[in-house]
Amino acid sequence: MTLAEVADAYEREAYVAIRHAVQDRLRRQARCLRRMVANRDAADPTTLRLHHALTLDVPGRWCRRHGYRASFGYDGLTLQREGEPVIVASVGNTLHWDGHRITVTP
């Protein structure tokens, strides 16, 4: 079972829990696990796959690390570096850093 699956299990348990304190604790644990998954995904400096479990700051930090500004929208992000055209990436795309620039693959 992956960390994301465990987080989903905590969310399901929170949904059926009767006591508010138990619901809150389970949801906090699920958020913590999802945060771990997102940080682990961003640890690779050469690739980052965009998915719904990523928190907004993770791809933003990853892009800044490579000299790009990122802006977030409904289903993905746009990124740009001074003097280069805007790059648009959607959920499910993978960002690649080749040492000089970021490219996007579906």
Rank of each mutant, 00 (worst) to 15 (best):
Met1Glu: 09
Thr2His: 10
Thr2Gln: 12
Thr2Asn: 13
Ala4Glu: 15
Ala7Gly: 11
Ala9Cys: 11
Tyr10Gln: 11
Tyr10Asn: 08
Arg12Lys: 11
Arg12Ile: 06
Arg12Tyr: 11
Val16Thr: 13
Val16Asn: 10
Arg19Tyr: 10
Arg19Ile: 07
Ala21Ile: 07
Val22Arg: 14
Gln23Gly: 11
Gln23Glu: 13
Asp24Thr: 08
Asp24Trp: 10
Arg25Asp: 14
Arg27His: 07
Gln29Trp: 08
Ala30Asn: 07
Leu33Asp: 13
Leu33Met: 15
Arg34Tyr: 14
Met36His: 11
Ala38Met: 07
Asn39Ala: 14
Asn39Gly: 12
Ala43Cys: 03
Asp44Phe: 04
Asp44Met: 02
Pro45Cys: 04
Pro45Glu: 09
Thr47Phe: 03
Thr47Gln: 07
Thr47Ile: 05
Arg49Phe: 04
Leu50His: 01
His51Ile: 03
His51Ala: 05
His52Trp: 10
His52Thr: 06
Ala53Cys: 09
Ala53Asp: 13
Leu54Asp: 02
Thr55Phe: 15
Thr55Trp: 13
Leu56Val: 07
Leu56Arg: 04
Asp57Cys: 08
Asp57Ile: 06
Val58Ile: 14
Val58Ala: 10
Gly60Glu: 10
Gly60Gln: 08
Gly60Leu: 06
Trp62Cys: 03
Cys63Ile: 01
Arg64Gly: 13
Arg65Val: 07
His66Cys: 06
Tyr68Val: 03
Ala70Trp: 00
Ser71Asp: 11
Ser71Gly: 06
Tyr74Asn: 09
Tyr74Val: 10
Gly76Phe: 01
Leu77Arg: 00
Leu77Lys: 00
Thr78Phe: 01
Gln80Thr: 07
Glu82Ser: 06
Ile87Pro: 00
Val88Ala: 00
Ala89Phe: 00
Ala89Tyr: 00
Val91Pro: 02
Gly92Ala: 04
Thr94Gly: 06
His96Ala: 06
His96Phe: 14
His96Tyr: 14
Trp97Asn: 04
Trp97Arg: 03
His100Leu: 15
His100Gln: 15
His100Thr: 15
Arg101Phe: 04
Ile102Lys: 01
Thr103Cys: 10
Val104Ile: 13
Val104Thr: 09
Thr105Ala: 15
Pro106Glu: 15
Pro106Arg: 10
